[in-house]
Design a protein around this nucleic acid. Structure first.
Length: 587
RNA sequence: GCCCCCGUAGCUCAAUGGAUAGAGCACCGGACUUCUAAUCCGACGGUUGUGCGUUCGAAUCGCACCGGGGGCGCCA
C-alpha cells in the first residue's frame, strides 16, 4: 500500500550511507512497525552496522545501528510523506497520518468488495487433489481433514491469483471393495441403499470384516471372488458398477452439505491399466526390474541415483501376479493430470504417512524422464485422532461418522439459537443452526498447522465459545445488524472527522493486513493464517462494537463509522469465504 | 538401522531470524434501560524439552541428546 513512499525513503537512506562511507547492505528489509495505534513502515540498521564491524572497526553493533537510525531519521524528519519519524533501538520508523491511512484502507475495501484481499493473476494453473474417499466404506471424521483443508487451500490459492483445478481421486477398487461385495452377495443380496447411503455402505463393510474375523475360513470365498473380479466376470463387474455408484451418490450429498465441489473426478480403477502400461515401459527402459514370478516388479531408486545412504529405497510398482498396486496407479495418475491439464503445479493433499510413497513415485517418474515430475507437490497434513491417540479405522468401527457429527453440531447450534434469538422464524433458525454447526466443525481443522495432529473430542467439537467459527460469524451478524438499521446509506470512504479511538484504529489495522495474509497463506499452503486473520478481525470488530457507538454518533462520525462497519463486514465475510464457512446475516 | 513430524502458560494452540513470546479454554473478579451479552473488561499464568553452536539478534537456523508420534518390498 505504500510502495512509493518506501522506495523514496530507501533512496534517501542509500544517499546518506554513500555520503558517509558506510557500507550498504544488499537489500533493506522493510516491515510494519509493531502496531501500537499508529501506522508506519520500518527498517533496521543492524546489518549495516554488522558490515562495518566485519570491515575491521571496533563497533558495538546495536549501538551503532541506533546511531545510524538516528542520523537517517534526522535526514527524513521533514519528508512530506511521513507524519512522524523516529529511531528506536536500531530501527527507523516512518509513520503515516492516521486519518489518511484509514481513508485509504476503507476506500480500497469499498471499491473492491468481494475482491478485497485478492492477489494479481499469477498466470499459473495448479491442480489440487484432495479428499480421496474410498467407495464401499464409511466417510468419517478422519477423512474430513483432507476434504476441508483441500477445499480451503483451493479457495485461498484461487483468490491469491492461481488458476485452480479441483480434483478428487476415489478408491473404487481393491480388497475392501471385494470384501464388501462378498458380504452383500451372501447376506444382503438385492438390498437397496436407504436414505443414509454412506452409513449403510460403511456398515456392510464393517460387517464383512467382522464376519471374516469370526470365521477366518470364509477368507477363501473372498479370494475366490477376487479372482472372478480379476477375470472381469460380468456379474461382478455389473454389481461393482452399481454399488460403486451408490457410494458416489452418497459422497455427492456429503460434499453438497459441506459446500465442497470438484472440477475433475479421477478413479482408482481408471488408473489401473495405464499404470500397468507405464510399468511395462519402465521395465523396457531398464528402470524397473521384473523379478516375476518369484518376486515383484521393483525400482531400486537409491541404486539408480547412486546414493550411498538409503533415501528413496525400493519401490514395488507391480505385484508378482501382475496386478496393480497403489503405486502402479499413482504413476499413471500423475501423468494423466499433466496430460489432461497443462499444469504448472500438481498438489496432493494427502496425510503425512504417504510421504515416502510420493517421493518414491515422483522420483521414479523423474528418472523415467518426465520433466513435470518435479512439479508435483505433497501437501502433507497430520491425522485426526481420537483421544488417547487412537487412529480412526473403519475396519474396527472406531470412527466418528461425519453424518453424526453434522447432526449433533446442528442440533446443538439449534438449541443455542432457540435460547439466544427465539423470535426468528423456524426456517431461519434451521439455516442458522446449519451454518453455525458446519462452521464449528470446519474451523478447528483449518486453524491448526498442517503438521499438528488434531484430536477429535465431542465436547470440544461442540463448544461454540472462544476462538471458534461462531465467534467470527457473530461479529459478522453484529456488523450486519448495524448496517440494516443504517437505512442502506453507504457513504464513501472519508477521512475521519474525529480523533480515532484505539478500537477503530485496531480494526482498520486488521483489515489492512488481509491482502498480505492471503498471499502468505497461499504460498505456504496454510489455512491457519486465514483462520488467525478471521479471528483477529472478529475480535477487533467486537471491541469496536463495544466501545464505539455507530448509529448514535454525531453525523460526520456516524458516516465514517458506517463506512468502517461496511469494510469490516466485507473483510470478515471474505475470510470466512476463504475458509468455506458461511457468513450468516442473523443468528 | 535409516527417514519424517511434534515438544511454547495447568489444557488446546499462535508467533515473515527482529522491538516487552501472544490468544482461547479452565479458574477468580467485574459490565446488559444501549447498534444482538454466541459479547466486552480485568486478574492469574513462561528457564519456549535439555545442552552446545551460527548470528548484531534464536521459540524460529545447525549439531547432539531427552520425550512422544509416524514411515520404511508386493496395504492404501
Amino acid at each position: 500500500m505504500f510502495q512509493s513512499e518506501q522506495k523514496e525513503a530507501e533512496e534517501l537512506i542509500h544517499h546518506y550511507l554513500e555520503e558517509n562511507g558506510i557500507p550498504i547492505p544488499e537489500a533493506f528489509q522493510w516491515g510494519n512497525v509493531p502496531f501500537k495505534g499508529e501506522w508506519g513502515i520500518s527498517t533496521s540498521f543492524f546489518e549495516t552496522a554488522a558490515l562495518e564491524a566485519r570491515s575491521g572497526k571496533q563497533i558495538n553493533v546495536p549501538e551503532r545501528a541506533q546511531e545510524i537510525a538516528q542520523d537517517v531519521s534526522a535526514r527524513l524528519e521533514k519528508h512530506r510523506s511521513f507524519s512522524r519519524v523516529e529511531a528506536v533501538k536500531g530501527y527507523l520508523n516512518l509513520y503515516f497520518a492516521t486519518g489518511e491511512f484509514s481513508r485509504k484502507v476503507i476506500a480500497q475495501v469499498l471499491e473492491q468488495r468481494r475482491d478485497f484481499g485478492k492477489g494479481d493473476p499469477k498466470g499459473e494453473r495448479v491442480m489440487v487433489e484432495f479428499s480421496q474417499p474410498n467407495t464401499h466404506k464409511a466417510f468419517h471424521v478422519g477423512h474430513l481433514r483432507s476434504a476441508i483443508l483441500g477445499d480451503s487451500i483451493c479457495r485461498i490459492m484461487d483468490f491469491a491469483g492461481y488458476e485452480v483445478v479441483r480434483a478428487n481421486y476415489f478408491g473404487d477398487i481393491g480388497l475392501h471393495v471385494i470384501k464388501w461385495l462378498w458380504n452383500y452377495m451372501k447376506y444382503h443380496a438385492g438390498e437397496e441403499p436407504p436414505q443414509d447411503t454412506t452409513r449403510w455402505m460403511g456398515d456392510i463393510y464393517a460387517e464383512a470384516n467382522q464376519r471374516l474375523e469370526e470365521n477366518p475360513d470364509l477368507e477363501s470365498e473372498v479370494r475366490e471372488l477376487y479372482a472372478r473380479w480379476d477375470a472381469r466376470d460380468p456379474e461382478i463387474v455389473d454389481l461393482w458398477q452399481n454399488t460403486r455408484q451408490w457410494s458416489l451418490d452418497g459422497f455427492e450429498d456429503m460434499y453438497d452439505t459441506l459446500n465442497i465441489h470438484f472440477d475433475h473426478l479421477y478413479a482408482n480403477s481408471q488408473a489401473e491399466k495405464p499404470g500397468q502400461e507405464m510399468v511395462k515401459e519402465l521395465i523396457e527402459e531398464g528402470i524397473a526390474e521384473d523379478l516375476r514370478p518369484e518376486d515383484a516388479v521393483i525400482v531400486r531408486i537409491d541404486e539408480l541415483l547412486g546414493l550411498e545412504k538409503e533415501q528413496y529405497r525400493v519401490l514395488v510398482v507391480l505385484r508378482s501376479d501382475g496386478t496393480a498396486l497403489y503405486a502402479t496407479e499413482d504413476l499413471a495418475l500423475a501423468k494423466m493430470k499433466f496430460t489432461d491439464y497443462d499444469l504448472n503445479k500438481s498438489i496432493y493433499v494427502v496425510d503425512v504417512r504417504q510421504q515416502l510413497h510420493f517421493q518414491q513415485v515422483w522420483k521414479t517418474l523423474e528418472i523415467a524422464g518426465y520433466e513435470w515430475a518435479k512439479r508435483c507437490e505433497h501437501l502433507s497434513y497430520e491425522l485426526v485422532n481420537l483421544p488417547g491417540n487412537v487412529v480412526m479405522a473403519s475396519r474396527d468401527g472406531t470412527v466418528v461418522l461425519l453424518e453424526d457429527l453434522i447432526r449433533e453440531a446442528t442440533a446443538r447450534a439449534l438449541e443455542v439459537v432457540e435460547e439466544k434469538n427465539p423470535s426468528l422464524r423456524k426456517q431461519e433458525k434451521q439455516n442458522v443452526a446449519k451454518t453455525v454447526g458446519l462452521g464449528a466443525i470446519k474451523y478447528p481443522l483449518l486453524a491448526r498447522d498442517n503438521t499438528k495432529i488434531v484430536t477429535f473430542d465431542w465436547e470440544k467439537a461442540l463448544d461454540f465459545n472462544g476462538q471458534a467459527a461462531p465467534y467470527i460469524q457473530y461479529a459478522h451478524v453484529r456488523a450486519n445488524s448495524i448496517l440494516r438499521r443504517a437505512w442502506g446509506l453507504l457513504p464513501k470512504a472519508v477521512t475521519p472527522p474525529h480523533e480515532l479511538e484505539p478500537a477503530e484504529i485496531n480494526l482498520i489495522e486488521r483489515i489492512s493486513q488481509l491482502p498480505d495474509d492471503v498471499g502468505r497463506a497461499a504460498e505456504e499452503r496454510k489455512t491457519l493464517h486465514i483462520t488467525n486473520t478471521a479471528y483477529e478481525l472478529a475480535r477487533a470488530f467486537n471491541k469496536f462494537y463495544k466501545q464505539c457507538p455507530v448509529l448514535d454518533a454525531p453525523p460526520r462520525v456516524r458516516k465514517f463509522r458506517i463506512s468502517l462497519v461496511v469494510a469490516a463486514r466485507q473483510a470478515i465475510a471474505n475470510t470466512l469465504n476463504l475458509l468455506g464457512i458461511e457468513a450468516p446475516p442473523v443468528m
